[in-house]
Design a protein around this nucleic acid. Structure first.
Lengths: 145, 145
DNA sequence: ATAAAACCTAAACTTGACTTTAGGTCAAGA
DNA sequence: TCTTGACCTAAAGTCAAGTTTAGGTTTTAT
């Protein structure tokens, strides 16, 4: 059993955030001793899942719904699985988007490197439409679809 | 030259968002004709960069700073390059984080699949600590570092 | 010429996820 | 015992990134 301070330290989260999660129903059935929250391994695991779902882009209110399903037991296995399947898809799409973002960023890094190395921006801008090396041209185009 | 409506359509953004970007200084020096904004290729390119920087996690106020640097000309090449280098690092880190998130999500998908297929949650939970196939065990651990 | 569609501004409002504040309770060490 | 640090709640505040509203102007199609 851990105090709220110990858990905050372990997850590197402010205590106020843990209280907020509890208030929002993300830690249903957490034990109390004379008013103080007692975090057990169940809550530690819940916090791992909360961080995972948050990182996947899920909102607090949807995480609360998931926690409700957990309490309802076996009858909600299907809903819970579908939720994670949907998060999988969302995260995969976000990674694809970030990969495209990265392509354009890499192009811009190269672009400014050239600009610093050998000339004015004007020269370079004239260069983009047709004289770009094939690989960089692809990076540029990727960023602009 | 494009109207705000045409650009909104092209980028699939609400018109109000384009006005907001302009108000926040993200489209410096945009032309006007009798009060109406006229988007040229310069603004189209700016919007591509705005979407890229936003996707990388940059805030509006920092994108405004970047746009100011663009106006200042060649003397800010260094600052602009450093900004993109920093965004590259940030996006790479985010992708690493999302990969870990995905590992845990995949584990949860598998977990609920098992739960639905062959039994109660209790049996499964007892199974996690030691009887997990090696590959899934790794997924689980990845999600909990 | 006129009416609808597209545009404009300023200012207020919204939303989500916290954080801060104010005022109090509890417990462990000196 | 006392006091200090860790904890508690409710309610208000904050912040970013828009969105909505209200009232007005301009363009375009009939």
């Amino acid at each position: 059993m851990y105090t709220i301070g110990q858990v905050a330290e372990r997850f590197q989260l402010p205590i106020s955030t843990l209280r907020y999660y509890d208030k929002e129903g993300l830690l249903p059935g957490i034990e109390r001793k004379s008013g103080r929250r007692l975090f057990s391994d169940v809550e530690i695991e819940a916090l791992h899942v909360i961080e995972c779902l948050k990182a996947s882009g899920l909102e607090i209110r949807e995480i609360r719904q998931f926690m409700k399903w957990c309490i309802e037991g076996a009858e909600t296995y299907g809903k819970r699985k579908e939720l994670f399947e949907a998060r999988k898809k969302a995260v995969e799409e976000e990674m694809t988007r970030l990969q495209k973002t990265l392509d354009l960023i890499r192009f811009k890094c190269w672009y400014y490197e050239q600009a610093i190395k050998d000339g004015t921006e004007e020269k370079l801008q004239a260069m983009i439409p047709d004289k770009l090396p094939k690989k960089l041209r692809e990076l540029y185009d990727n960023g602009h679809q």
